[in-house]
Every structure is written in C-alpha cells, then in structure tokens.
Amino acid sequence: MTSGTANIVGFAGMLCIVSAYGYLTAREAPNPFIVHSVNLLGAGLLAVSLTVNTNLPSLVLEGIWACVAIWGLVKAAAARRSEP
C-alpha cells in the first residue's frame, strides 16, 4: 500500500470515528451497535493506515479504541439478550 492510499484509508477511519461520536451526541437514544461498530471500523482503518505511516502511540491508541468498541458491542449484545 502506498503512503497516499494509507492516508485515504486513515481519513476514512477518522471520518468513521468522528461520525460515530457525532451520532452519539446528536441522538437522544443512540443505537449502541451503530456507535461501537462504526468506532471499531474506524479504529481498524486507522490501524491499517498506521502500519504504513507508522506512529506507534497512535497505533496503540487505535488498538485500545478497538478493544473498547468490542467491549461495547459485547455489552450491547448481552443487554439485548436480557430484554424480555
């Protein structure tokens, strides 16, 4: 992957994360599956970008961001299963 392509992938990831935060802020009752899925996608895209344009602290941050998103998806799935 070229550096330019990695930048495009990184910008797409950034757009995902910012969009998820905007959605979370704008909605009265946001769907947690949307928020966490889009955050996970964004973290993954940014991580791919960061493997080409290496920035270790940012790569670690995206790993943590992905873990939090997965945790949120697991919690949302557990909450959905416990609904009547």
Rank of each mutant, 00 (worst) to 15 (best):
V60S: 07
G72H: 05
W65V: 13
V60K: 11
N55R: 10
L46H: 07
I34G: 03
N7M: 15
G10F: 05
P30K: 03
A76F: 06
L50T: 12
I64W: 11
A79C: 03
L50Q: 04
L73D: 05
M14N: 12
W71I: 15
V74W: 02
P30E: 01
L50V: 14
E62W: 10
S37E: 02
I34C: 04
V60E: 06
G42I: 03
C67V: 15
S58T: 15
A20G: 08
M1I: 14
R81S: 08
V9T: 14
A12K: 05
L40K: 01
N53A: 10
I8H: 05
L45F: 05
A12L: 14
I34W: 08
M1T: 15
G63Q: 13
S58C: 02
G4R: 15
A69D: 01
L24D: 13
L46Y: 10
A79K: 07
E83W: 05
I64H: 00
L59I: 14
W71P: 08
A78K: 06
A12H: 10
M1S: 13
L46D: 08
L41H: 04
M14E: 07
P30G: 06
M1K: 15
L61P: 06
S82V: 09
I17C: 06
A6R: 11
W65A: 09
E62Q: 13
I8T: 15
V18S: 08
A69V: 06
G44A: 10
G4K: 14
A69C: 07
S49W: 01
E28I: 13
M1V: 14
M1E: 10
G22P: 00
Y23H: 03
G22E: 04
A6M: 03
L73P: 03
F11N: 13
A78F: 00
L59P: 10
E28T: 14
H36T: 11
C16H: 04
T25D: 14
I64G: 11
I17N: 04
A79S: 07
L41D: 05
L61N: 13
I17A: 09
R80W: 00
R27T: 13
S19R: 13
W71A: 12
P30N: 05
L41W: 02
A43H: 11
T25H: 13
L61S: 10
A26S: 09
A76M: 01
K75F: 02
K75A: 02
I34H: 04
Y23I: 05
G4H: 12
L61Y: 02
